[in-house]
Design a protein around this nucleic acid. Structure first.
Length: 460
DNA sequence: ACAGATGATTTAAA
DNA sequence: TTTAAATCATCTGT
């Protein structure tokens, strides 16, 4: 489509050039006929045989030639052909052509001026950068859409993401392929056309004055035309990618709620670390793994870790904003972890292995520090009609855990984890409602993870 | 359709 | 870089 336009445009340019030549010839003719010697300053080789003694003769020669040139169109074809041949063989022809070329060169430069210098188009550069960033223009990675999708899945978007992404990838690959084919097509057409024009000009340079420089310039013009078409292609490709992107990748558009199990896991962690709900990197990793496994059996925690971070960020701020609203939930999860802790603790006590579970019993430490927070088990009882059992278990756990703590403190293997817990216990939330920042959150939480994860592990 | 819940993004601060 | 806070955009239950 645009190719033909380009050809037309280039042909226009050619035509323009020819017009120029006609003009130049006329002016040359005028100059010579006005009696000025074309010799001045120009490197005219001396005509053989004459040692420059008869300047009039040469003038006469040039005049003849020019006259023939000017009248060439008035003659019949055969006649013209004969004249042309004569001209071509004329001893002055090369010299005249070189002069004509030179003059033409100068005129052409003054006409076109410096406008031919094209600075790198900023828009084009922007387009290029974007295409590169989107992976459309970059080096080919993987063959078809299947390969691209596989690469996407392997490179580790979250499992549910990659399903959506594969569609996106496929479309992107499609765009990419179209882009490359078109680009190649244009390139090929450009080369073909350039060669064609160059051949034509070379051919013509035998019969009319065309300097190599001019051919070069013509090639430049052609390339510019083609590259402007390429820019259109790039532009439309960019648009297509943008549309695709907004349709497929805008995460807000495609928000999926987490699965119940995933929320469960996250909540469990949150409420059992209520005093300091800042999971360490490893903890996030682990949670991500656990959640993504429950969400779907494909484990790729790459972006799920970010989701975990988001979740905790949202949870913290929302919990803090309206603690009352979350009390029930908190009690629920506290009870849950308590039950789990009970199992762990019971097992531990039964085995009388003090060093294995070291459960910091976040269940009780997580007795979150509401302004009027009483015993969480009592609260739970009041809130959940059916929680009597849980309360009992809780109480049971409390004693067992106490026993456990006792045992632990006796073994004196660690700094009493209880110390940490009591530290956060009643005052996890500081007066202004923020969590106390005990140094780096992660550094506080991560040691917890080893032992602490015992019960959260068992909870799943 | 609506309100509330919720995951993601943005902005600013440490 | 991580986080709090505000905000957006969608999901979900009614």
């Amino acid at each position: 489509m645009s190719f033909s336009i380009c050809v037309a445009q280039c042909t226009d340019s050619l035509a323009a050039t020819m017009d120029d030549q006609a003009r130049i010839m006329q002016s040359i003719g005028g100059v010579s006929l006005a009696g000025h010697s074309v010799q001045g300053g120009m490197a005219l080789p001396p005509p053989h045989g004459h040692d420059g003694t008869d300047g009039d003769g040469r003038k006469q020669d040039i005049g003849d030639i020019l006259h023939q040139i000017m009248t060439i169109t008035d003659q019949s074809l055969d006649e013209a052909q004969a004249k042309k041949h004569g001209l071509n063989c004329h001893r002055m022809k090369p010299a005249l052509f070189s002069v004509l070329c030179e003059i033409k060169e100068k005129t052409g430069l003054s006409i076109r001026g410096a406008q031919e210098e094209d600075p790198p188009d900023p828009q084009l550069m922007r387009l290029d950068n974007m295409l590169l960033a989107e992976g459309v223009a970059g080096p080919e990675k993987g063959g078809g859409s299947a390969a691209a999708a596989a690469a996407a899945a392997a490179s580790g978007g979250a499992a549910d993401n990659s399903i959506e992404h594969s569609d996106y990838r496929a479309k992107l690959t499609q765009i990419r392929q179209i882009y490359h084919t078109e680009l190649e097509k244009y390139e090929q057409a450009c080369n073909e056309f350039t060669t064609h024009v160059m051949n034509l000009l070379r051919e013509q340079s035998r019969t009319r004055p065309i300097s190599p420089k001019e051919i070069e310039r013509m090639v430049g013009i052609i390339h510019r035309k083609f590259s402007s078409i390429q820019m259109q292609l790039k532009q439309s490709t960019c648009e297509a990618v943008m549309i695709l992107r907004s349709r497929f990748l805008d995460a807000r558009r495609k928000r999926r709620n987490f699965s119940k199990q995933a929320t469960e896991i996250l909540n469990e962690y949150f409420y059992s670390h209520l005093s300091n709900p800042y999971p360490s990197e490893e903890a996030k990793e682990e949670l991500a793994k656990k959640c993504s496994i429950t969400v779907s059996q494909v484990g790729s925690q790459g972006s799920f870790k970010l989701q975990v971070s988001n979740w905790f960020g949202n949870k913290r701020i929302r919990y803090k904003k309206n603690i009352g609203k979350f009390q029930e939930e908190a009690n629920l999860y506290a009870a849950k972890t308590a039950v789990n802790a009970a199992h762990a603790a019971a097992a531990a006590v039964q085995n009388s292995q003090a060093n294995s579970p070291t459960t910091p019993n976040s269940g009780s430490s997580g007795s979150f520090n509401l302004p009027n927070s009483g015993d969480m088990f009592l609260r739970m009882q009041s809130l959940n009609g059916d929680s009597y059992q849980g309360a009992q278990v809780g109480a049971n756990v409390q004693s067992q855990v106490d026993t456990l703590r006792h045992v632990i403190s006796q073994t004196a293997g660690y700094n009493d984890p209880l110390g940490r817990n009591t530290m956060y216990g009643p005052h996890g939330l500081s007066a202004n409602g923020g969590w106390q920042h005990a140094t780096t959150p992660s550094s506080v939480t991560s040691p917890t993870e080893g032992p602490g994860s015992v019960h959260s592990d068992t909870s799943n």
